[in-house]
């Protein structure tokens, strides 16, 4: 009898500590947790989240034929809710036969040029952001799950190198702000941990949806470093490393950020 009670007690203790490890064990914070309650509510409420307008537009574009092939994304991929579920959690990735990784917008542009025979959409183009938001939205709530492989790992290591190197006239590295001083205040703004959980994001300062690349360029400009050209592989390398740091955190697309 007492053995059974002891056993039950142990089971309860284990169950409780397991649950706590699940909830309390996660030390990393998404930028979401650093925002005020009003912005969190805006992100959580699909009727208030301005990013959802882009997701809706992306849904329309998904079904619209384009290019010389006159094919829509849906013609090949069917319902995005099935075919695109989880895809954004494992980008950047290396397309079949390619020798370098592409980010999600790069993958979408590959389908435009190779499969639809349509022109590339330029960076920060509204339709490109809308398609990316629509595809990434199919993974909302799913944990970030980066792929591995010798080539990917080499690019990821390059990204980590950039992340840790000081640069710009202010001579700062990403790590100085986002690792060593995360949570502290930079001119009154809480420094986030730089997890790319919500891209493309609706940023209030931009008054529109924008890509991770745009966000990274904002940080580079802030430290007076030369931003790489928009098609530079450095952004993809950085994103590979940021996704690795954020591995397991849930995607939020479309996130709202100040």
């Amino acid at each position: 009898m007492s053995a059974r009670i002891l056993c039950l007690g142990l089971v309860l203790v284990f169950a409780a500590s397991y649950a706590m490890a699940q909830v309390g064990g996660e030390k990393r914070r998404s930028g979401y947790q650093d925002m005020g309650e009003a912005l969190q509510k805006m992100q959580d409420d699909d009727t208030a989240n301005p990013g959802m307008l882009f997701v809706q537009l992306g849904g329309q574009l998904w079904a619209k034929p384009a290019g010389a092939e006159n094919k829509s994304c849906a013609d090949c991929h069917g319902a995005a809710a099935n075919s695109m579920k989880g895809v954004a959690t494992r980008y950047p990735a290396i397309p079949h036969g390619a020798d370098r990784p592409v980010d999600l917008e790069g993958r979408i542009n590959l389908c435009r040029t190779e499969n639809q025979k349509a022109e590339r959409l330029p960076p920060e183009n509204r339709d490109l952001l809308a398609l990316e938001a629509y595809v990434a939205h199919q993974s909302r709530g799913m944990p970030i799950a980066p792929p591995y492989g010798p080539l990917l790992d080499a690019f990821r290591a390059q990204g980590e190198g950039i992340y840790r190197r000081r640069q710009g006239q202010l001579n700062l590295s990403c790590a100085i702000c986002h690792d060593d001083n995360a949570g502290k205040k930079l001119a009154g703004i809480a420094i986030p941990e730089a997890h790319p959980t919500g891209y493309p994001i609706y940023r209030l300062e931009w008054q529109t949806l924008g890509s991770l690349k745009r966000r990274l360029r904002n940080c580079l400009v802030g430290i007076r470093a030369e931003a790489w050209p928009l098609d530079a592989p450095e952004y993809v390398a950085l994103e590979l490393y940021l996704m690795e740091r954020a591995k397991g955190l849930p995607l939020e697309t479309p996130a709202v950020r100040p």
Partner: peptide
């Protein structure tokens, strides 16, 4: 130190063109 050097131009990487060779 993470405090920028306000009157030095050497030893910096990838400074934006507008600030190249200039002290803060």
């Amino acid at each position: 130190t993470i405090m920028p050097a306000y009157y030095r131009t050497g030893g910096l990487q990838r400074v934006a063109r507008a600030f190249e060779g200039k002290t803060i």
